[in-house]
Amino acid sequence: MIYAVHINVMPLKELLDPQGKAVMSGLSNLGLKGVEDVRIGKHITLQVEAASKEEARKIAEEASQKLLANQVMEYFEITVN
């Protein structure tokens, strides 16, 4: 079966996000008020062939740990559909 796997990779909350700060400043310069914080990350979609949702999640987890996320600076969340 083919599963659509969505992986969100974000900077750790404890770390400064320079891209997010730049966007926050830009929004303020445009007069857009009310935005409290901006964090910039990556959204990755995989089409995974697997026998079950659990197997698809394991494949995505391994891909995230080994390649897609730098676990020193980022965390990831996986959704399997």
Rank of each mutant, 00 (worst) to 15 (best):
G26L: 02
N29W: 01
P18I: 11
A22R: 07
G20A: 06
V23R: 08
A22D: 10
D37K: 12
H6M: 08
P11N: 00
N29R: 09
S28L: 09
E36G: 07
Q19Y: 08
L16K: 12
D37V: 11
G20P: 01
S28A: 12
A22I: 08
S28Q: 12
A4C: 06
Q19T: 03
V35H: 04
A4G: 07
G20F: 05
G34R: 02
G20Q: 09
Q19F: 02
L30P: 05
G34S: 04
D37A: 14
L12C: 01
V23A: 11
P11E: 00
G31Q: 08
A4I: 09
S25V: 09
P11S: 02
V35Y: 03
L15M: 02
S28C: 03
V9Y: 00
N29M: 03
A4W: 03
S25Y: 08
S25H: 12
E14W: 01
D17S: 02
Q19I: 00
Q19A: 11
L12N: 00
L15Y: 11
A4M: 06
L32S: 06
L16Q: 11
I7G: 06
E14Y: 09
E14I: 15
S28W: 08
N8M: 14
D37Y: 06
G26H: 04
K21A: 13
L16H: 09
P18Y: 14
V35S: 03
G20E: 04
G20K: 11
V23H: 09
V35K: 04
I7F: 09
S28F: 07
N8W: 14
A4Q: 13
Q19K: 13
P18S: 02
I7D: 10
G20T: 09
K33W: 03
P18K: 07
E36Q: 11
D17I: 00
E14D: 13
G20C: 00
M24V: 03
S25G: 05
G34M: 06
E36W: 05
K33Y: 10
H6P: 01
H6C: 09
K33A: 15
V35N: 06
K13A: 15
L30G: 02
N29H: 07
V5F: 10
N8I: 02
E14N: 12
S28N: 12
V23Q: 11
Q19P: 04
L27H: 13
G26P: 03
E14Q: 14
K33R: 12
P18H: 12
L15E: 10
I7H: 05
